[in-house]
Structure formats: C-alpha cells, structure tokens
C-alpha cells in the first residue's frame, strides 16, 4: 500500500552496515493486534505522564499512527514493546512541551486517575504518581515491565548509574509514603 525506502543503520560486529528495504503500510490486522497487545502499556505510560483522558486519547492516536506508518521490522516482541514504550514516552514529553499545553490547564486535569482503581491499589498508585516524573517512569519500567537498570538506561537514553540512583531515591520516597514498603 505504501511504498517507500528506508535506510536503517545498525551496528554490526564489523562496523556499520546500511540496509535499504522497501516497506508497506501495516495492515489493519497488524494494527488491531498491536492495539490489543500494547494499549494497556500505552495507557499506563499516559497515566504516569499525563493527567487527563483527552491527552491520553491524543497519545494513543499519535503512537498507533506512528506504528501504522513505521518502516521498522521488529526482530521480536520485546523489540516491538520497547519501541512502543519509547514512542509513547516521547509523545507524552512532546505533548507536555507543547506551547498550548505549557500555558493552559484543562478542566480534565482535575480528574484523579487512580480514583477508579480498587482501594487497595489506589494508595500505591497515588504514591507512585506523587513521585517526580522521571522517577515514576523508572519505577514503572522496573517494577511492572521488569526492565533492569541498564535496559532502562538504553530505553530512556540515560546513564545506567543515573537509573540506579533514580530507582534508589524512588524506593526511599515510596517507603516514606507507603508504610511497610519493602523492596524484594
């Protein structure tokens, strides 16, 4: 459907090799599968970064449209998931940086996302959302998605030690907010 040429540079063992390939727009079936598989992940990242449903809707549209038009051939499900997370975080950051967003406050921002969560989880979520944004992402990626500090570093383009530091501080803050918080 959509013919184009993409040049992908990848680091090989013997240097950099350039691959040029023809790609097509992803099929409806592929897109539906991606929505079913990654919608929850995108939603959680929206919750971590944003505070209202309308923004989440924008992010969903941006992320999945990028997916539809993306030329990347994913090597594995993990590769695809990492790409989704990366694109979602960038889209959220872009939205937060936008001129309109930086100078206005939506009425929807008053909505408290964890409000709809069961009572026993609401406290935990509120504690996480009370952390600084960069800590929230690291906590989510580590405790829910199961990424290690080096993996989070590569995903967020951050130094591994920085990730360790963020995780340590986040744990300390969560301990203060949530009694009995023990890092296992």
């Amino acid at each position: 459907m959509r013919a184009d040429v993409a040049a992908m540079a990848e680091d090989g063992e013997e240097g950099i090799s350039i691959r040029v390939r023809i790609f097509t727009m992803r099929s409806e079936e592929e897109v539906n599968r991606a929505i079913e598989r990654y919608a929850d992940t995108v939603r959680r990242l929206c919750m971590i970064h944003l505070k209202n449903y309308a923004d989440a809707e924008d992010i969903f549209q941006t992320v999945f449209l990028k997916y539809v038009l993306s030329s990347i051939s994913f090597e594995s499900e993990e590769h695809e998931r990492a790409w989704m997370i990366r694109v979602t975080i960038n889209a959220c950051k872009d939205l937060l940086k936008s001129f309109y967003r930086s100078r206005t406050v939506s009425l929807d921002e008053l909505v408290d996302w964890p409000a709809e969560a069961p009572a026993d989880h609401r406290e935990v979520l509120e504690a996480v959302l009370s952390l600084p944004q960069k800590n929230r992402v690291v906590v989510y990626l580590h405790y829910y998605e199961g990424y290690t500090a080096p993996e989070i570093g590569r995903l967020l383009r951050k130094n591994t030690n920085t990730v360790y530091t963020l995780l340590t501080r986040s744990r300390q803050m969560l301990k203060k907010k949530l009694e009995g918080f023990e890092d296992e």
């Binding site: 979520l125 996480v128 829910y144 009995g180 296992e184």
Partner: peptide, 30 residues
C-alpha cells in the same frame, strides 16, 4: 511490595472506548 506495585499498575487498563476511538482515527487516517 513489588507485587503490590505490579498489581496496582496492572489495574490500569486501556478503556475499550479509547481503543475504539483510536481504531476509528487510524481507519480514517489510513
């Protein structure tokens, strides 16, 4: 606590309405 965090995050799910509006948007765009 790891489990609590995991369970709490697991509670957050994309609403069907959100998925559906995304599908409509993509169908329109494509």
């Amino acid at each position: 606590m790891n489990d609590k965090l995991k369970e709490a995050f697991g509670e957050i799910r994309a609403e069907e309405q959100l998925k559906e509006s995304t599908r409509r948007f993509l169908a329109q765009k494509t």
